[in-house]
Design a protein around this nucleic acid. Structure first.
Lengths: 222, 222
DNA sequence: TTAATAGTGTCTTTCAGACACTATTCA
DNA sequence: TGAATAGTGTCTGAAAGACACTATTAA
């Protein structure tokens, strides 16, 4: 078999969490060239002795940097080319990972490793990472219309209004409240949880959780 | 910088064409272990000195094996893991490529390299290639509802009925004729071409081409 | 009782599906 | 003119949006 020069393979992660009702992006500051000092997506090399696939690599990278576990993590795409990395032809498998229940209160193992910025306006990032973030937000808009993906930004138990809010965040549009309730109801997506949640001098709302707790794809649009 | 053992990176292509109104899959027979003698997706290594990215690799592989050019080619996903290839941890960037205008009449440069089988029932393939083919058909069903992708199986100029047929092939369902015309019309997707096409003792149909000739994504479902 | 948010009922509009109807060609 | 396919017009039903209405709590 002929041998070819091997391209470099890495994994990058677009880490997203809800913070004060805004989508935020977890970034690391680069300590070395190229793009030294700039913010970039967290990423790393595949460890061939421990990673079952590139998604496992992505989850390991996030766990090592933040201690966060239990994230919804999926592959976005693979970007590649001769110019992305000065060391040579490289390919990066890009994943996105959703933190459930908002940002932890600075009690995670190594909070200094990570900077959180608004996902909609992250500033200038290293490499082509701005394009990747834009691509994932676009993907979310399409995925959000047809799946329970946005619910994975919420804690395990949430109110109907919180669910509508996160769908609106992800889709970038306002949703009709009664139509949204109708559709979620028909999709049989939620189950009620005993107990109520009160917030700011108003009628407490019913709490729900995702039925089965898993990501589901719909036939009908939200 | 620490060095890690490098995973193997390859590119596989799911090559699809219309043949006698059926979706067909272009496969190669493996000459070496593993899976020697079985049919597999055409694929190869990245040539770091000539490929601009993995999609360029996919198109080069197809061009070398079949002489086909001008295909619509997009990335599907990257599959990876320690067990896929006996030589070690490997990652494969899977693309799909659509041949326009049906299968050429055995006049391509090296037809013997390729075997065409029905995409819906390709038989047992090497590696996890059956899963990949199933994934791409599933992707087409979703992509077909929201884009002009199915039209890229047709020649540059086609009739309305041919367009509906290929959408039905890709989506796997019958479509309402007048609703389909209504939607395509509203999407402003086609432009008429002067001239008519006759077929089997019946009224000739208007010929159309894709406006702009490019893949377009819709907001509304077909 | 008022403010504030949760949740429901229903009218209207929009749009997809069904299907009958007309149009154009060839034999 | 009859067979065959191309293409149109329009009725109907389902589902989305708008929005007024009721419900339940805290102050």
């Amino acid at each position: 078999m002929t041998e070819f020069p091997a391209p470099i393979l890495t994994v990058d992660v677009i880490l997203l969490a809800l913070h004060e009702d805004k989508l935020c992006l977890g970034l690391v500051r680069r300590r070395e060239p190229p793009f030294q000092g700039m913010l970039a997506l967290p990423g790393g090399y595949v460890h061939v002795d421990e990673d079952a696939d590139t998604t496992a690599t992505a989850l390991r990278v996030i766990r090592e940097k933040t201690g966060l576990t239990g994230l919804l993590c999926e592959q976005l795409a693979t970007v590649s080319g001769p110019k992305r990395d000065p060391r040579g032809w490289s390919a990066t498998v890009v994943h996105y990972a959703l933190v459930r229940g908002g940002l932890p209160k600075s009690s995670q193992p190594r909070p200094d490793d990570l900077t959180w910025v608004p996902a909609a306006s992250p500033g200038a990032l290293a490499f082509d990472h701005n394009d990747l973030v834009a691509a994932v937000l676009e993907r979310f808009r399409s995925r959000g219309s047809w799946s329970s993906l946005p619910a994975f930004f919420l804690p395990e138990v949430f109110t109907f209004t919180a669910l509508r809010n996160i769908y609106e965040q992800v889709l970038g549009t306002a949703l009709n409240d009664s139509a949204f309730r109708r559709k979620i109801d028909e999709l049989n997506l939620l189950e009620p949880v005993a107990g109520h949640k009160s917030k700011m001098s108003a009628r407490p709302a019913q709490l729900f959780r995702l039925k089965g707790g898993v990501l589901r794809t719909f036939d009908r649009r939200i």
